[in-house]
Write a protein that binds this DNA or RNA. Structure first.
Length: 316
DNA sequence: AAGACGAAAGTGGTTGA
DNA sequence: TCAACAACTTTCGTCTT
């Protein structure tokens, strides 16, 4: 039922050594590092339910979910159900009840309906797993209930909730990516994110640079060894407290850059910078710090010498 | 010629008075 | 509310490969 039954081989190198990360919704080839599928099919039950279907296939109630405005628990007064058989008082009462229910669907619920549609749209653009989407919907629902949307655009709160959900689930998406998918300015996304997490007392761990490594490495087509080396470098750096206060993407990018150099898969600073969404300058700064603190300088020098001597060999 | 390097000035956000 | 501040960016000139 899971995707690994459908994808057994890496389309890039043919390896069968695949790593399935269900939490992040990614399948990664251990051999070449290719991210094969970022959006896995939701394996959950497909619920079907028809109003007049007496031979219902239902096994239990619909699943409770935050991605529907009433959490999937609402009950509507039906339309077709034998209305014509009712007469007089009963029939009037029936209509009155329906009207009442319509009125009771307050602004909050209408807002939620719209917002959750938007949330779904953005989540699918970003290929976020269902668990994150659910979390974001939960956060948004809470935000609406506490009146935090007032004075802010619905879209920006949706974006903020999604970003918060990503952070919570350690499924890293940068503010830039969220901003692009939701058409909300980056600073606005950041601001609503900060606002709702503060108001809802959400505790969010500072994002870990290591979470970005897999995605960046795959975008740069680096070997898995290079990738794991980058993570080692990252851990070293964290021990030496090089990471606090710095943008996690910049650190991840620099670690990857160094690792790529050491593994002879050199990428230019430009390439790494583009993938990570930082500038070359930031990579250079982090890179410099890494070399100084982790005594990698000798290794790099050796590499350069070897490169030169090889060149001479070729020339001779 | 392309990439790497580094200095200097600018930007947006946080913090603390 | 304002100024100081840190991280990051932009820009640009210079050096290296």
């Amino acid at each position: 039922m899971m995707s690994e039954e459908f994808i057994k081989r890496c389309p890039e190198c043919g390896s069968t050594n695949l790593f399935v990360n269900k939490e992040k919704g990614e399948i990664i080839c251990r051999n070449c590092g290719l991210v094969i599928e970022e959006q896995m099919i939701d394996p959950g039950q497909e619920w079907r339910e028809f109003e007049d279907d007496t031979s219902s296939r239902r096994r239990a109630g619909a699943p409770m979910t935050y991605t529907q405005y009433d959490q999937g628990l609402g009950t509507d007064i039906g339309r077709k159900t034998d209305i014509n058989k009712l007469t007089g008082k009963t029939r009037n009462k029936f209509f009155r009840l329906r009207k009442w229910q319509y009125r009771i669907s307050t602004a909050i619920e209408r807002n939620l309906k719209l917002a959750l549609a938007e949330l779904k749209r953005v989540a699918s653009i970003l290929k976020l797993p269902k668990s994150v989407e659910e979390e974001a919907a939960r956060i948004y629902t809470l935000a609406v209930q506490r009146g935090l949307v007032r004075g802010r655009s619905m879209e920006s709160v949706v974006a903020g909730a999604l970003y918060a959900a990503c952070r919570r689930h350690e499924v890293p998406r940068t503010l830039d990516e969220l901003s692009e998918a939701s058409n909300i300015e980056k600073k606005e996304v950041g601001r609503t994110y900060r606002f709702i997490t503060r108001e809802l007392n959400m505790k969010i761990l500072p994002s870990n640079p290591a979470d970005y490594i897999a995605r960046f490495a795959s975008a740069l087509r680096l070997n898995p060894e290079t990738q794991s080396h980058a993570i080692e470098i990252l851990e070293e750096a964290q021990k030496k407290e090089l990471t606090s206060g710095r943008g996690p993407t910049g650190i991840a990018a620099a670690a990857l850059y160094v690792a790529a150099l050491l593994h002879g898969e050199k990428r230019t600073q430009r390439e790494v910078a583009d993938v990570a969404g930082v500038t070359e300058v930031t990579i250079r700064n982090r890179y410099k710090e890494l070399l100084e603190q982790l005594n990698l300088e000798e290794q790099i020098k050796k590499l350069k010498k070897r490169g030169r001597s090889k060149l001479k060999e070729i020339q001779q």
